[in-house]
Write a protein that binds this DNA or RNA. Structure first.
Length: 297
DNA sequence: CAAGTCAACAGGAAAG
DNA sequence: CTTTCCTGTTGACTTG
């Protein structure tokens, strides 16, 4: 970028010297923009080692110019790339600015300490905005993953539901068959099938309407547990057990919602997980405040 | 020339 | 009370 010539002398040297704390001038429009009476002429050539600036030389500006500058509206000077680089390095090492460091930086850069303080304030604000953007992107990504996961599970649920329907139809048909033939045939069903029927008919009397109701209830239970699994997989993806075991437990819960499927003796690997802890992974959807719990600020 | 960037400011809150 | 920080705003300046 081309070097920009000196823009505005403002209050001149007197102000530069006495203006340790610029607040008294804040309300005075005449002094706005006169914080650092610096010349940035040749700003591109003075960045190595020494100071980046030249003091405003009041001697070179007559009273006419002084008055002229004094009444000019505010004009802002950009910091040189060297100054910015220096400040950036300093910011990287520590984004807080202790008074000693502020003065030291101001000396080295040829700026007013207040300019350094303001730069740090603005820099922190920019950093925070960037961080917010990043957090938003991360959250969006998590949400998309969660959504895809949920949709898969809905499909899985639909599949399981159709299986349940099919099985219940079959059972109803078998019910009819056995009641028709029971008067003529005295042979019993195999033991395992009998147990299966018993499980499905548990607490269900002869009434088929109640039986359908029970099936619907079981399906709702499956749906609830699937939604819980969606939530838990959001954060604990790695913790998911092998699919066969989950499937087994799903079927168990589908048919035996009141039974602790995780502690049933059929599990042979000795994995006796606490069902409450298994289902306590809920963290909520992104809209929920809980979802921000893992966010680090 | 509109939109974006950035130094600087205003005002309130918090810390000492 | 002073100082610093935060947040929002202003206006000069840059960029496409």
């Amino acid at each position: 970028m081309a070097a920009r010539s000196f823009l505005y002398g403002g209050g001149g040297g007197d102000v530069l010297i006495t203006n340790k704390r610029p607040d008294p001038f804040r309300s005075s429009a005449a002094f706005q923009g006169s914080r650092s009476m610096l010349s940035f002429e040749d700003r591109g050539n003075n960045g190595s080692g020494g100071q980046f600036w030249q003091s405003f030389d009041h001697e070179d500006n007559g009273d006419d110019e002084y008055d002229e500058y004094f009444h000019q509206p505010e004009k802002k000077r950009r910091l040189t790339s060297d100054q910015v680089r220096f400040l950036e390095n300093s910011f990287e090492s520590d984004n807080k600015l202790e008074p000693d460091r502020k003065v030291q930086l101001a000396k080295e850069l040829g700026l007013q300490p207040r300019q350094v303080a303001i730069w740090f304030q603005n820099r922190r604000a920019r950093w925070k905005n960037k961080q917010l953007e990043k957090d938003y992107d991360d959250l969006q990504e998590s949400y998309n993953k969660l959504k895809a996961n949920y949709e898969n599970l809905v499909k899985e649920k639909e599949k399981l539901k159709s299986e349940v329907d099919e099985l219940s139809d079959r059972i109803i048909l078998q019910e009819k068959g056995t009641s028709d033939s029971s008067s003529t045939k005295s042979t019993s069903q195999p033991q395992t099938h009998k147990q299966h029927i018993h499980i499905l008919e548990e607490d269900v009397p002869e009434d088929n309407g109640n039986f359908t109701e029970k099936i619907t209830e079981l399906e709702n239970g499956v749906q609830t547990s699937l939604v819980e699994r969606v939530d838990s997989s959001y954060v604990f993806e790695q913790e998911q057990s092998d699919g066969s075991l989950d499937e087994e437990n799903n079927l168990c819960r589908m048919f035996l919602p009141s039974v602790d499927c995780y502690t049933l003796p059929k599990i042979e690997n000795g994995d006796h997980r606490d069902p409450q802890s298994v289902n306590s992974y809920y963290l909520g959807l992104p809209g929920d405040d809980q979802a921000f719990g893992f966010w680090s600020y």
